[in-house]
Simulated assay, not measured.
Amino acid sequence: MHRLIGLLRSVRERSTSGSASAPGAAGASELREKGQGALHSAAASGDLAELQRRWWWWQRLRINRRDAKKQTPLHLACANGHADVVRFLAGKKCQLNPRDSLKKSPLMKAVDHQHKDCVTILLEHGAKPNLKGAGGNTALHMAAVIPSKPLVELLLEHNAHIDAQNELGYTPLTLAITERCEEMVEFLLQKGADVHARDKHERTPLMIAVLAGNMNTIKSLLRHGADLSHQDCIGKQATHYARELTLYTNIAEQLEEYIRCEMTGECSAGGTEGPAVLDSFCAGTAAHCPLGDLQ
């Protein structure tokens, strides 16, 4: 029981300690350390004129040089939001996908600090949106837990895998559920995220939502076709998790009533067969619906 309750806590700790860091986790001052070369300093400070002035000296020798944290000048420009420098370096054919000591690419740095213009430039020059960093998270995982709809949409437009899995088997959708990003969950579902995706223990997003105790997310998942009959690797369903977590007894009761309502057909609109979304459940008023008002 305690292990189940601790599951969500451990996931959240992992996501904030290196998997999908919170935006702005590394400030600009952290990126301008003593001992950096002139090229790194110019990129970090956004000094495009200096870069252009000394370019012929730097281009072959230092454009992809790493600092003590294995960051290239492009990493620093992206972290600090210097789009003109990013465009200049990308146009000079610098490496677009190197990873630093925290396994973050320049694209991940730009996403992490929510510099959409830098993200756009990198993607347009061919940066890899599906590169995996710490914890197996992609830039899309990071954008989903910030949360930032514009960044998610931009990454998807450039072929980011919406159902990419990290080391826990979590997709951006599942990770957004653990972080209680309700609007992002709905947004990803509308964009086609797999509501039946499985993690390393065969848990579905619905099971994770139950563990999180988030009824709004549970409703959203059910509206998009989540299946309450799915089982994890030891045969547990979402209702089993709700029953075992005593804090969520009310959720268990509502889910069980929902299942009964679906099986008997009492809530299906117009006798429609098959799994109906919640908006079409309950032929009567919202008070008759086992999961309450969906508006």
Rank of each mutant, 00 (worst) to 15 (best):
G126Y: 00
R99V: 07
G133I: 05
E182G: 10
D67V: 09
F88S: 01
L96R: 13
C118H: 14
N64I: 01
H113R: 14
E167F: 08
K128W: 00
Q95D: 09
P147Y: 00
H115A: 01
N166H: 11
C181P: 01
G126D: 05
H113F: 10
Q71M: 14
E182D: 15
K93F: 04
N159I: 06
D100Y: 15
E124M: 11
A79F: 02
Q71I: 07
M142Q: 13
G169N: 12
H125Y: 06
K93W: 08
L131V: 14
V86M: 09
A164P: 09
N80D: 02
H161C: 09
C181M: 12
G133W: 05
D117M: 04
A139H: 04
S148D: 10
C94H: 00
S105E: 07
L107A: 03
I177E: 02
P150H: 09
H161L: 03
C78H: 01
P106V: 08
H161T: 08
K93M: 09
D112R: 15
Q71V: 02
C118D: 06
L74M: 04
N130S: 14
Y170N: 11
D84Y: 06
H115D: 04
K132P: 03
L173F: 09
I177G: 02
N166Q: 10
N130R: 05
V119Q: 06
D67R: 07
A68E: 13
L156S: 06
D163Q: 04
C118Q: 07
K128S: 05
D100H: 13
L89R: 00
P172N: 07
H113N: 14
G135W: 07
